[in-house]
């Protein structure tokens, strides 16, 4: 655990140097990568540790984005708005978890998939508060330059990623993470051994919701304008899963590596094959699930032979 923490500290410090390049493109890419990393790590609590295939990432992300945006519209300072958004997503995940986590496997996956759609419709119809389908503009500070703003949101996302990583590292090496692994392996056996499975699963879902929601809130402030189909995009849910599978579920660095690999692929594919983007994503998922259920790092490379 100490080794992972040290390695992560070095990694985050290196990433913190990206703004020194002074290139707007790299800064945008870096912020996106960190955001993807947070979404992937957030999913890892429920999907990786507990083994529940959640498609609720988009719901949490969108809820956090709108909560943060509406709070700021009502005059709440930005940092506080982000915190409130995370807290609201956490509470929402608790209620949602109590209802949905009774379901297992595909049933849970499908139910969690529907949540983002429901929230999107709600936001669409609550025009007074959210602007409905017109979207919502966020206040832009007048005194800041574009460049210093990009840098600010990069560091904000970096801080969130570091906090999320610390939480995940702690959870993985604590009784909570151990209990979640038991649930992932065999839930009824875990129950029979004294694990309060409902409590543990809901706790994992709450962590998942809080961090994905906070990422949504920072995203909203970063892009200044959000609309329902953008932040409640089901692709956030899909990407979260793909990234963790790419990086390897069950390892603490998996989600971050997965996010980096995924974003690189996405940039390449986006730029060159705009029309087939979704198709390529779909193909990747199929290949991953079929051939690499434990991530690209589980490939039996010659120098890794003999390791478990």
């Amino acid at each position: 655990m100490r080794k992972s923490a040290l390695l992560a500290a070095v990694l985050f410090l290196l990433v913190a140097l990206v703004p020194l390049a002074g290139d707007a493109y790299w800064l945008r890419l870096g912020t996106t990568m960190l955001m993807y990393g947070v979404i992937a790590m957030a999913w890892n609590f429920i999907g990786g540790l507990a083994g529940y295939p959640s498609f609720a990432s988009a719901a949490f992300f969108g809820l956090g984005a709108y909560a943060g945006a509406v709070a700021q519209k009502l005059g709440v300072p930005m940092g506080l708005a982000w915190t409130l958004a995370g807290a609201l997503s956490l509470a929402f995940a608790a209620l949602l978890g109590l209802a949905l986590l009774r379901l297992r496997g595909h049933y849970f996956a499908i139910a969690s998939l529907v949540v983002a759609e429901v929230l999107r419709e709600l936001v669409n119809s609550a025009t007074d508060l959210t602007g409905g389908g017109m979207g919502l503009n966020l206040p832009v500070p007048h005194d800041a330059t574009v460049a210093s703003q990009s840098e600010f949101f990069f560091y904000a996302m970096l801080a969130l990623a570091a906090i999320t990583f610390a939480a995940m590292l702690w959870a993985t090496h604590s009784k909570l993470g151990f209990g979640l692994r038991c649930i992932q392996q065999n839930e009824s056996a875990a129950d029979m051994l004294g694990v309060n499975t409902t409590l543990y699963k809901v706790a994992a879902f709450m962590l998942s919701g809080a961090f994905a929601g906070a990422a949504g809130a920072i995203y909203a402030s970063w892009v200044h304008y959000i609309e329902p189909p953008d932040v409640f995009d089901v692709l956030y849910s899909v990407k979260a899963i793909v990234m963790v599978l790419l990086g390897g579920a069950g390892s603490v660095f998996g989600p971050l590596f997965g996010a980096a690999i995924f974003l690189s692929l996405e940039e390449l594919v986006w730029r060159n094959y705009l029309q087939v983007h979704t198709g390529v994503l779909g193909l990747m998922i199929v290949l991953l699930v079929l051939f690499l259920p434990k991530g690209v790092f589980s490939l039996r490379l010659p120098w890794r032979k003999g390791k478990p």
Binding site: S174, K175, F178, G179, C182, A190, L193, G194, V195
Partner: peptide
């Protein structure tokens, strides 16, 4: 160990 800590109240 799982059995010990969750039902047997032994520390993690």
């Amino acid at each position: 160990a799982a059995a010990a800590m969750f039902a047997g109240a032994v520390r993690y």
